[in-house]
């Protein structure tokens, strides 16, 4: 995700930034924000225009002009072993009996992704509420090793397939909420979620014919709202009747 960039429009600069953060699945302190166009409200919509921002996932000390050191397969597997050992040592010191294995080491477009799996006792504690402790663990491991690993290498940490399972259940939540929004023809608001989870919801419904998604609220209270599209599922019984004929 590092170096990843999106350009997003919104009625206001704040709204555009919020949308961009959701698309990227990150928090505000992880990005660089450029305001390309300030939004303007105009008078009764006359002369108004949307704000446009570019939001880029920041890497500390990232220099765009610097040649990316792609390394080779031998470097990758040495890096994977270093990441595995470091994580195992951290967890050992924290008194979590554990076993860390390298799931995959993948190279794609010059980016190396090392996926580590942790198994052991009391893993629920290590995952934390909404996976917050797991997110901390992954962030800390990447930060601690940033000087030793190539800047194009990223470590993913999962605990007993928590991320896969959580993603599946989030997709289920998204689909059921979308069904309800469509059936009851009103917006459905989900529980507050961290950015990475809101991203799963947006992605799950982005090609939906019936609903749109957006996030509202700030910080840890930010939630996804799923709204029926205006044209979605007109009821046959209504066809031919003028709008509001029943008062």
């Amino acid at each position: 995700m590092d170096g990843h960039s999106v350009e997003v429009q919104g009625r206001t600069t704040e709204e555009a930034i919020g949308k961009a953060l959701d698309q990227l699945g990150v928090t505000r302190d992880e990005v660089e924000i450029e305001v390309l166009t300030e939004g303007r409200a105009g008078v009764f919509g006359v002369g108004s225009h949307e704000a446009l921002v570019r939001v880029t996932v920041a890497t500390d000390d990232f220099d765009e002009d610097e040649e990316i050191d792609a390394g080779d397969a031998a470097t990758d597997s040495a890096d994977a072993e270093l990441a595995r050992e470091t994580l195992e040592r951290m967890l050992d010191l924290l008194d979590f009996a554990n076993l860390v294995t390298v799931r995959t080491t993948q190279r794609e477009r010059g980016l190396t992704t090392i996926a580590l799996d942790v198994a052991g006792e009391d893993m629920g504690l290590l995952i934390g509420r909404h996976g917050e402790t797991l997110a901390s663990l992954q962030f800390l491991l990447n930060t601690c090793l940033s000087r030793q690993l190539s800047r194009s290498t990223r470590i993913l940490v999962d605990i007993e397939h928590y991320r896969d399972r959580r993603e599946q259940s989030l997709r289920g939540i998204a689909v059921r909420a979308a069904e309800r929004a469509r059936r009851e023809r009103r917006p459905v608001t989900l529980q507050p979620m961290p950015p990475s989870e809101r991203r799963v919801i947006h992605l799950a419904l982005q090609s939906s014919t019936w609903v749109t998604t957006e996030s509202t609220g700030e910080g840890s209270e930010r939630r996804v709202v799923i709204s029926p599209k205006p044209t979605a599922a007109p009821r046959r019984a209504n066809y031919g009747y003028s709008r509001g004929s029943r008062g």
Binding site: L125, S136, L137
Partner: peptide, 19 residues
């Protein structure tokens, strides 16, 4: 940046202490 590293260290310490 914005206390992100110390926050993640503390969150891991909290998990360890909870046990």
């Amino acid at each position: 940046r914005e206390g992100r590293i110390i926050r993640s260290i503390r969150s891991l310490l909290r998990a360890a202490a909870a046990r």
